[in-house]
Simulated scan of single mutants.
Amino acid sequence: MPGTIDGQTRVTGLFGYPVKHTLSPAMHNAAFDQAGLNWVYVAWPVKPEALAGALSAVRALDMPGVNLTIPHKEAAAAYLDELDGLARLTGAVNTVVNREGRLVGYNTDAPGFTLFLQRDLNFPPAGRRAILLGTGGAARAVAAGLLQEGLDFLWLSGRSREKSHQLENELAYHFPGRTATLPWYDAGDRAAGAAWATALRSAGLVVQTTPLGMSPCIDALPPFPFELLTPGHLVVDIVYNPPRTLFLQKAAARGARVENGLGMLLYQGALAWELWTGRTAPVPAMRRALQSSHQSSDFGLQK
């Protein structure tokens, strides 16, 4: 964090509810310090009913912008002046930029996730197949990012069949013939089990985007046929708190390669930082700050 906060300090931050778990302040403040900018990043717990007022404050206080997280990514669009193409495509906003009083919504989750896959995990999506769990703002961003990068096919699975089909239809408009819906897994449903077995034989990537398993509810996880995983699967849970969710633990026990969402957090944050400042983000400094905070934080782990 910058050494001095004074009358020239510019304030950015995160709107979400809750935000106690976030590592974003450490990452962004390390970047501001590295770049010599008199800026500061703060996390605000903004309840859903307060979102409109909080976004109005960005304009009123001449803030450069903010990040948005659960539960605001989809609701925010109604209160913004403009959306970029990817935010319109995904229906989700995670970064707001204040351009002389006009609030513009962006989605850096989508390119942030694919940068993480390609740069850190050596998994270029082009020509591959994947399964996505969840239908919320993060799921929409991951789906759009993968398909834009040339993913061959994507199976979507959400607890709500209606929301799953809605997301499939929206994506099919832009990426025809490359998406399908899988039922929310039920071990007692033989037809669902057969569909999952077929998908997992073809998919090399599984992405878990629901908040199930996030601290403090670390014993929660979405239903999944873990017995069908192999060492050929890459399993990513975008939750990073705790560092290894129960979902990842079970996937690793089957030999799958597993990763949490810290890398996605890094790259989406770097892209947001660049939108606010107009400078190239100091990614190594941001990565060091994230890793240090991740290792030292109390995630409420009970096992």
Rank of each mutant, 00 (worst) to 15 (best):
R161L: 15
A57L: 06
T210A: 06
L266S: 13
T69L: 07
S215R: 04
V142I: 15
A50L: 03
T198D: 13
D219T: 15
S202K: 10
L80P: 13
Q295C: 04
A78R: 15
A43H: 05
A130F: 02
H72D: 03
Y106P: 05
E259F: 01
A281M: 13
A252Q: 15
T245P: 07
A172C: 01
Q8V: 11
L271H: 09
S56Q: 14
A195Y: 00
T135K: 01
K73V: 10
P125R: 08
L290V: 11
P211N: 07
R287N: 02
V66K: 01
D152P: 01
G65K: 09
L68Q: 12
S293L: 06
P225Q: 08
A285F: 01
G91I: 11
L68G: 03
W273V: 02
T198L: 06
N98K: 10
H28S: 08
F299S: 09
F153P: 05
G255S: 06
T9K: 10
Q291S: 05
K73Y: 11
P71R: 03
R161K: 14
A187C: 01
L221D: 10
A251F: 14
A192P: 07
H165M: 08
L262P: 10
A126C: 05
R59F: 04
Y17I: 00
R129G: 03
E259T: 06
L37Q: 09
Q268K: 08
P231W: 06
G261F: 09
D186S: 15
D298V: 09
E149K: 14
F113C: 06
R254S: 14
R254T: 09
Y173P: 00
P231R: 11
M214D: 05
I131K: 00
M1D: 05
A191R: 14
F226E: 12
Y79W: 15
G65V: 10
Y79T: 08
M286D: 11
